[in-house]
Simulated assay, not measured.
Amino acid sequence: MKARVQWVENVKFVAESGSGHALVVDGPPEHGGRNIGPRPMEMILMGLGSCSNFDVVSILKKSRQDIFGCDVAIESERAETEPKVFTKIHLRFTVTGRNLKESVVQRAIDLSMEKYCSASIMLGRAGVEIRHSFEIVELNTN
């Protein structure tokens, strides 16, 4: 994997992935930014959520679960002093579908967080306390 980050002005950057996708990274006005893109640490959380959600959806589909949606809300705590690393992260999955088995959903999330999601494993090894929970939203069968 490769990526490139180019400084544009003040605290605005354009980040481009090796696969050719780009996005603007920016800071808040009090740090010289215009607030037109996510912060770098927000991107880490978004990467973690995307990585784990990708796994969970894939595992649930392979497990023949009738899944219609999977959202993950992520909350974090950071150290108060520099470097302001993440100290705790909680991922709350909301899985929507029909006749979803709680044990299968739990297993999919556990497998993602403990075996497949590189971001989760990397952050955990760096000392971040990562927790997760989930809820199932059952769709009507009518």
Rank of each mutant, 00 (worst) to 15 (best):
G32Y: 11
I59H: 03
V85Q: 08
I130M: 05
S58I: 06
V128H: 05
G127P: 04
T81L: 14
L60C: 02
N53I: 06
K115N: 09
R39A: 03
G18F: 12
P28V: 09
I59W: 01
A126P: 11
M41G: 07
M41I: 02
V24C: 08
V104N: 02
G49R: 00
K84Y: 07
F86C: 00
R92G: 00
E80C: 10
I130V: 05
S52K: 06
V137E: 14
C70M: 08
V14D: 02
R34D: 13
E135Q: 15
F134E: 05
I109V: 15
V137H: 14
D55T: 08
K62R: 14
I36R: 07
S120L: 03
Q106N: 13
E16S: 04
E30Q: 14
H90W: 13
L100I: 06
L123Q: 01
L139T: 02
F86I: 01
S118V: 03
V137N: 09
P29D: 10
L123A: 06
R125M: 07
S58W: 09
M46L: 12
N140F: 10
G32L: 08
F134G: 06
S112F: 11
E135S: 07
A126G: 13
V128N: 02
S103L: 13
R107V: 03
A15W: 00
H31R: 15
I130D: 00
A126F: 09
L60S: 04
V128F: 01
K115E: 06
E82P: 00
C117W: 02
V14C: 11
A22C: 04
P83I: 02
H90V: 14
G97A: 10
L48M: 10
S120T: 09
R98H: 12
L111A: 09
G97Y: 05
F68C: 05
G97E: 08
E16W: 01
F68W: 07
A119S: 15
S120C: 14
R78P: 00
P38T: 11
Q106D: 14
F93P: 00
Q106C: 10
M113T: 10
R131E: 15
L100G: 02
N53M: 08
V104C: 00
A22I: 00
E114Q: 15
K84Q: 14
D55S: 09
L91C: 15
D26L: 10
F54C: 10
V85C: 01
S19R: 12
